[in-house]
Amino acid sequence: MAQSGTASELSLPSALMLLAPLTLLMLAILVYPLALTVWTSVYPGQFSLQAYTELLSSTLFLKVLKNTFEISLSGTLVSLLVGYPVAMHLAAQPPSRRTAYLIMVMLPFWTSILVKSFALAAVFGNQGLVNQLLGFVSGGQINLPMMFNRVGVILGMINFLLPFMILSILGSLLAQDRTLILAAETMGAKPLRIFWKITLPLSLPGVVAGVLINITLSIGMYITPALLGGRQDMMVANLVDFYTRQTLDWTAASATAVVLLLISGLLVALLGKVRGASGLSGAVA
């Protein structure tokens, strides 16, 4: 489009002038604090990797790391199992109705995470709507514990993750060539067989991208486990906060943050390989 030397192209000095203010701000408010975090983790007075060796032998850290992977992976799995049929339902709608349904799917994306956490606690809490309904149906008093434990974290998490999973799978369902399915039907294939042999395999790129986006988004979660989980459901982000505010151990907090940064960096790189460079930004914007 814009070849070098065309009249619409900016000269290098003016481009630099326009880019300088934002670049300086990003260096000061993004790169510097990240570098400071790494520095704090390895330089508590003199250079040492002690913070990291201590983390690796800390039962608290290892338990929290295990929690983080467990919660993140099970949340993603539930989101996939729930999201896939929704994506199929959306794909089968005529475009105008699909837009209306999509607005419903996107609404949680626009709602504050605090509003959602508060509301989920009200719906799934001990005296919440779901327990009231269950009690009404069974005719007794029901107090199914669904909040402030693992179930609560997963519920909060999939409410946040589902839109990303659904949109990702929907994309690859809509891209499929439907004549394939018509052909299979004409030749007498049963619906289940068509699903396993055609629809599912062709949608795998969307599934893989959706799963990676979900894991990436959930691995660093802070608000949901803090508000909807119990004390046993602490995730890595909550541990960073714990070291910073409760024990005032900034070295341990920084080392934990660096570990989280590395994990999510790996995931983003993987996602970039699967989806091209715009992986996450395409999902968010």
């Binding site: 934002l22 670049t23 990003m26 408010i29 993004l30 790169v31 510097y32 604090p33 990240l34 400071l36 975090t37 704090t40 691995i219 660093g220 802070y222 982000a237 960073v240 906060d241 910073t244 900034w250 907090a253 920084s254 943050a257 989280l260 940064l261 999510s264 983003v268 996450l280 930004s281 968010v284």
Partner: peptide, 21 residues
């Protein structure tokens, strides 16, 4: 990449870094 980075870094890591800074 620099301008897009805030979207990709876990926000808790940014929170801690800014707190230290």
């Amino acid at each position: 990449g620099l301008f897009m980075m805030p979207m990709l870094v876990p926000v808790i890591v940014l929170g801690l870094g800014l707190y230290l800074q």
